[in-house]
């Protein structure tokens, strides 16, 4: 099923978890619980050491997952081991995508740097441009496609720098989701909307990820700016309850993205040493609440013309 199809019957509920948080096995269970709770698409975080777009909740999830041994290679195994049928989107930072070809090519740890370090005091050789040229994002995208990932979200890759990734995604049939901020308008918005596919991630407010007690009214304005574009609009950043979900869908969103509120459950379970099964149950029930909220939001929405 393609990402866009996931929006076909009713609002899409798109939960996020960091893969491998807090450990590989529990994380598999947690992601599967999201599907039971009604997920239409699942965003899986591949943790990067410098997650500049994340608030404290997801930063800590990233730390737990990295400490649990998550790597790009493990991540792809994780996706293969997952028993879910909804489409999966990988959310990660560009350096991991960009470097993947290098690590594959070298297999083990960086031999050239070990060699360099043998001569403690030597100068850096001027690098030959041709030799240094990276294979770019293609190997990562090829691998992602081969394990069944449907799309990518890369928070530190603006449309201006996304050419090579967009090309690789086209080659291997992946969608590339862009994040539209409350400050994105005019030419920037257009450039982005030319590149986007699958859905747009509408960032509900400025700042970083994190659950909020209230949802922002910047959302309505963002949705209005996007009204003319024929691609599903999923709103995220701060949604934490069924009631939020309902309100966001009522104001015109085609889907909701929820991360920190779910990650909080994983974090609490980890801190308190809760049985993973119980944590999975709680994830499933919050997922269901969010999904039900989103569905309730549509029924109250003023009817709007069918998308073509």
């Amino acid at each position: 099923m393609s990402l866009e199809d996931a929006f076909a019957d009713g609002p899409a509920f798109i939960p996020y978890l960091a893969a491998g948080d807090p450990d590989y096995e529990s994380s598999l269970e947690y992601v599967e619980a999201l599907e039971r709770g009604g997920a239409d698409i699942i965003e899986l975080g591949l943790p990067f050491s410098e997650p500049i777009a994340e608030g404290p909740t997801i930063q800590n999830a990233v730390v737990r997952s990295l400490e649990g041994g998550m790597t790009p290679t493990r991540f792809f195994e994780f996706v293969e081991d997952l028993d879910v049928s909804v489409p999966l989107v990988c959310m990660t930072y560009y350096n991991l995508i960009y470097r993947y070809g290098e690590s594959e090519a070298q297999g083990t740890s960086d031999a050239s740097s070990a060699e360099r370090s043998s001569a403690d005091c030597r100068a850096a050789e001027p690098r030959d441009d041709g030799e240094a040229a990276s294979k770019g994002p293609r190997p990562f995208v090829e691998k992602a496609a081969s394990v069944g990932i449907e799309g990518l979200v890369v928070p530190d890759l603006p449309a201006e720098e996304s050419g090579p990734l967009r090309e690789a995604c086209d080659e291997f049939g992946l969608d590339l989701v862009f994040i539209v901020a409350p400050t994105t308008r005019g030419e920037r918005l257009e450039r982005m909307m030319e590149q986007v596919s699958g859905y747009v991630y509408v960032q509900a407010r400025l700042g970083t990820t994190g659950a909020q007690t209230d949802v922002s009214d910047q959302t309505g304005a963002s949705l209005d700016r996007l009204a003319g574009y024929d691609v599903p609009k999923a709103v995220g950043f701060g949604i934490s309850s069924g009631e939020h979900a309902e309100r966001i869908v009522r104001s015109g969103a085609d889907g909701i993205i929820v991360g920190s509120a779910l990650v909080d459950i994983v974090a609490q379970g980890h801190e308190r040493g809760t049985d993973p099964e119980a944590v999975a149950d709680r994830l499933e029930s919050l997922a269901r609440e969010l999904k039900d909220g989103a569905v309730a939001g549509t029924s109250q929405r003023p009817p709007h013309p069918e998308r073509t």
Binding site: F48, S49, E50, N95, Y98, R99, Q106, D110, S113, S134
Partner: peptide, 23 residues
């Protein structure tokens, strides 16, 4: 001297990273 090409804090440059690209 020992770094390799990558992306950190908004720019592509030479950085100290492991073979996966973690800083």
């Amino acid at each position: 001297t020992t770094g390799s090409e990558g992306i950190l804090h908004g720019a592509r440059t030479t950085i100290l990273q492991d073979h996966d690209g973690q800083i």
